[in-house]
Design a protein around this nucleic acid. Structure first.
Length: 431
DNA sequence: GAACCAAGCGAGAGGTAGGA
DNA sequence: TCCTACCTCTCGCTTGGTTC
């Protein structure tokens, strides 16, 4: 039902059941009250039996689900190129210091999740940030560096996986550590993390013009640092990519008011091509997620990761289609795929509908009810003109209820038997 | 008239939608 | 979240049709 709601978003849950905005794919599955009851009963741990030790984990209320979901993500075969970035799960409620504020994001308030994705957006590994002091790991490479090391632990070493991350994560020490583990890395880097690398200053590069670059190589660790002048100067570090081979990038030239080709180092091309996995996943989520308003913070994460589950499944489906040579309209769009998944899950537990139908529903008209009018007591007992008559059809006697008779009181129109053994006709007309 | 069967009826239980 | 009107479902009883 949640997936169906994601297809047609409404401002509030109740609107799916209201007569003006009724949405049958949701309302035909279950009633509003039942849905809300089930919603109120969603828990991932038994609050009564959970130990104090477990509660030290700030995410203990949803930890079993997160662990299960992460284990599933890890089962997917990782692609060669993996990007690491942060992802915001919108949430404005209050929950300790897990809730973060990230300036410049579409949803600045929310839970911060570190994610490792493929280029297409398949989530392979993640870690929900628990705020300062929340992660018990040693602070060796800074927050960002530690995240990269942690998320790369679940990747096979020395296979040639290429990792991409932005300047929040990159440092010389991190690249050295990844080189030791057999990972290839490329990422933007902040000026204050260049160590002793004396690459050309930004102002000097700007004078050389757009498309110019400078680079340095640390021979001991085989680390390359490239500074490239685009509209702004951007600095990248890598242990496998350098400036060569150069290619051309299409850029808008403000002065000429036309597109122009700008020299671009190889490392920039590599980074731009493979870095957007997490952003791609974010874009997919925004298209299929439905935000159910709740005060229970862990449900926000639950809905978010449930949506990611569908997206991951769809991306894997697309990958399989591609391998099988299925292309074009035969490949389902995300919304089609989501609808099919929802329908399959709904049909597993469909039951007969009971209770009052909503006002909009059509119901078959009932046959008119035959009402037999009982004679009033004054007429029944007045002993005037109660003549017996014979009817074509026999009916059950109104007094003994067992014998069927065709004898009837003409005035009362009531079937009454009358024979040697019993006289229901007389009994009916006397008090 | 008795027996059997099936449909109808009605009360109570339980569920639903809409509103406060 | 609670209340209320209104609906369906179930079950026991009633009623009507049929046969002997």
């Amino acid at each position: 039902m949640y997936f169906k709601m994601g297809l047609v978003e409404m401002p509030s849950i109740r609107m799916y059941w209201e007569k003006e905005t009724r949405y049958p794919p949701v309302t035909e599955v279950m009633s509003r009250n039942r849905f809300q009851l089930l919603l109120s009963l969603i828990h991932f741990v038994d609050n009564e039996t959970v130990s104090e030790e477990t509660k030290k984990d700030r995410l203990w209320k949803i930890r079993p689900f997160l662990d299960m979901f992460r284990a599933r993500c890890l089962q997917t075969t990782p692609a060669e190129h993996q990007s690491i970035d942060e992802m915001m799960v919108p949430y404005k409620g209050k929950f300790g210091n897990i809730r973060q504020y990230v300036r410049g994001k579409p949803h600045p308030w929310g839970f911060k999740v570190w994610a490792r994705c493929s280029v297409h957006g398949i989530l392979h590994d993640f870690d929900v940030y628990q705020g300062k002091g929340g992660d018990k790991g040693a602070n060796v490479f800074g927050i960002g560096g530690d995240v990269v090391v942690k998320l790369c632990k679940t990747l096979p070493k020395d296979v040639g996986h290429k990792i991409y991350a932005d300047n929040f994560f990159t440092s010389v020490e991190l690249i050295e550590k990844l080189s030791e583990d057999g990972f290839l890395y490329a990422g933007t880097v902040r000026k204050n993390r260049l160590a002793k690398c004396n690459v050309l200053e930004e102002n000097a590069l700007k004078k050389k013009g757009r498309g110019s670059h400078d680079f340095r190589v640390e021979s001991k660790t085989n680390t390359v640092c490239v500074r490239w002048q685009d509209s702004k100067a951007v600095t990248l570090m890598s242990n496998y990519a350098g400036p060569e081979p150069m290619d051309k990038a299409r850029r808008w030239d403000k002065s000429k008011k036309d597109y122009t080709n700008v020299d671009r180092p190889y490392i920039i091309r590599e980074y731009n091509t493979h870095m957007g996995g997490v952003d791609m996943l974010d874009a997919h989520i925004s298209r299929c997620k439905y935000s159910i308003r709740t005060r229970r913070w862990y449900l926000i994460l639950f809905w978010h990761f449930t949506s990611i589950g569908v997206i991951n499944a769809w991306l894997l489906y697309k990958r399989d289609c591609s391998l099988l040579g299925i292309t074009g309209k035969s490949v389902m769009k995300l919304r089609q795929f989501q609808s099919k998944v929802a329908q399959a899950l709904i049909e597993r537990g469909t039951t007969r509908k009971s209770g009052r139908p909503s006002l909009g529903e059509e119901t078959s008209p009932k046959p008119p009810k035959i009402i037999r009018v009982e004679p009033c007591e004054d007429a029944r007992f007045d002993q005037i003109a109660h003549w017996p008559v014979k009817r074509d059809k026999r009916r059950r006697c109104a007094v003994c209820k067992t014998i069927k008779t065709d004898t009837c009181c003409e005035r009362c129109d009531v079937p009454l038997c009358f024979n040697e053994r019993r006289n229901c006709y007389k009994l009916y007309h006397i008090k």
